[in-house]
């Protein structure tokens, strides 16, 4: 668990192990190293797809704005924007060709998991 300089621990956030804290993209911080998660998750030996969904920049994000206002209320400065999105983790049962899996998942993202009118997404395949 991370603590901010102010000493306040407002929200549980896991740091990305290879990146600095990205105020702009808090949802990316969910891509944690499994060995350091400390979450008590069961060990999984298949492929996982991690999908991060965020509102398009052109779409007004009242949740993001409210979170930003609250962070600033706690004294955090230097925040340009906060975007509140969704995180999906898809555990895959079959060890298929990676390329084929990615094609299927991108199709699922475009057709169902996201609304391309209002959302962007990133997709990452993790091998355990």
């Amino acid at each position: 668990m991370a603590r901010f300089r102010s000493g306040i621990d407002p929200i549980p956030i896991r740091f990305v192990e290879k990146s600095e804290l990205l105020w702009k993209y808090p949802t990316i911080q969910l891509c944690f190293h499994p060995a350091r998660s400390g979450s008590g998750q069961a060990t999984y030996h298949g492929m996982k797809a991690r999908i991060i969904i965020t509102p398009k920049k052109a779409v007004f994000d009242p949740q993001g704005k409210t979170v930003q206002n609250t962070l600033e209320h706690f004294g955090h400065t230097g925040i340009e924007a906060v975007h509140v999105g969704k995180f999906l983790e898809v555990e895959l049962t079959d060890r298929e060709d990676l390329e084929a899996v990615e094609v299927r998942l991108h199709d699922a993202c475009r057709r169902f998991l996201t609304n391309p009118v209002i959302e962007d997404y990133t997709l990452e395949i993790i091998h355990s």
Binding site: P55, V59, F60, P62, Q63, T66, N115, V117, I118
Partner: peptide, 17 residues
Amino acid sequence: LTEAGLLPGALVRNRDL
């Protein structure tokens, strides 16, 4: 209907939450 692509645009969270 917007999700199904039968109408244009999309509906999102109310401005004032």
